[in-house]
Computed example of a mutant assay.
Amino acid sequence: MPDLAGKKVLAAVSNRGVEQDELKKPVEHLRQAGAEVVIAAPEAGQVESLVGDWDLGEVFEASEALAAVDEQDFDLLLIPGGTLNADNLRLDADAQRIAKSFAGSGRPIASICHGPWLLVETGLAKDKTLTSYTSIKTDVVNAGGTWKDEQVFRCPANGYVLITSRNPDDLDAFSSAIAEELSS
């Protein structure tokens, strides 16, 4: 595992509905490698996760509100999935601002499962190749992106790196790809 000391990752989530393991596993992986990971949501405080978009999962702590985040302080943006999470984030003006800022400054974004909905909504999927949960394939294509059915995909097009994965089964490869990107 690479040494990620000195790297900062912003995990953007909604206060309810993030897929538990799509937040927990990458955050744990990155923290074990030495990265600082900050969880931010529309409101600072509790983040209620779900398992399989249905069952209640663990509760996490958002240390910052998305509106208060200075995204320039971070090296990578992590957008976990969960249908409710992704649908809420795609409509959140602060989440949109943060995603556009990362892409505009050439910093990497990593997103899994339904998380790419935020990229679709902001126009950041256009001319990108990515993977996601299969149910949003049409949204990606309609937004001008190219969809692939792969465990993890890294796309450097349009001036920023986008790392995507399909679902919780891909979390080990997804987490490793993020760590590798941060170590380069």
Score class of each variant (00 low, 15 high):
residue 4 L to E: 00
residue 9 V to H: 11
residue 9 V to I: 15
residue 11 A to Y: 01
residue 15 N to S: 06
residue 17 G to D: 01
residue 21 D to K: 13
residue 22 E to Y: 11
residue 39 I to K: 08
residue 39 I to F: 06
residue 41 A to H: 03
residue 42 P to G: 12
residue 50 L to C: 05
residue 50 L to A: 04
residue 52 G to R: 04
residue 53 D to T: 05
residue 53 D to W: 01
residue 54 W to L: 13
residue 54 W to V: 11
residue 54 W to C: 10
residue 65 A to C: 10
residue 74 F to Q: 07
residue 85 N to R: 00
residue 86 A to L: 02
residue 86 A to W: 00
residue 94 D to V: 07
residue 98 I to E: 06
residue 102 F to E: 01
residue 105 S to G: 11
residue 106 G to Y: 01
residue 108 P to T: 07
residue 109 I to Q: 11
residue 110 A to Q: 00
residue 110 A to P: 12
residue 115 G to M: 09
residue 116 P to D: 04
residue 118 L to T: 03
residue 119 L to H: 07
residue 120 V to F: 13
residue 126 K to S: 11
residue 128 K to C: 05
residue 129 T to N: 09
residue 130 L to H: 00
residue 133 Y to D: 00
residue 135 S to C: 06
residue 135 S to E: 10
residue 139 D to K: 14
residue 142 N to R: 14
residue 148 K to D: 01
residue 149 D to R: 15
residue 150 E to G: 02
residue 157 A to W: 04
residue 157 A to V: 08
residue 158 N to L: 09
residue 158 N to P: 15
residue 159 G to E: 02
residue 159 G to C: 07
residue 161 V to S: 05
residue 163 I to G: 03
residue 164 T to H: 11
residue 165 S to A: 15
residue 169 D to E: 13
residue 171 L to E: 00
residue 171 L to A: 08
residue 171 L to R: 11
residue 172 D to V: 14
residue 172 D to M: 11
residue 173 A to W: 02
residue 177 A to Y: 13
residue 181 E to F: 04
residue 184 S to L: 09
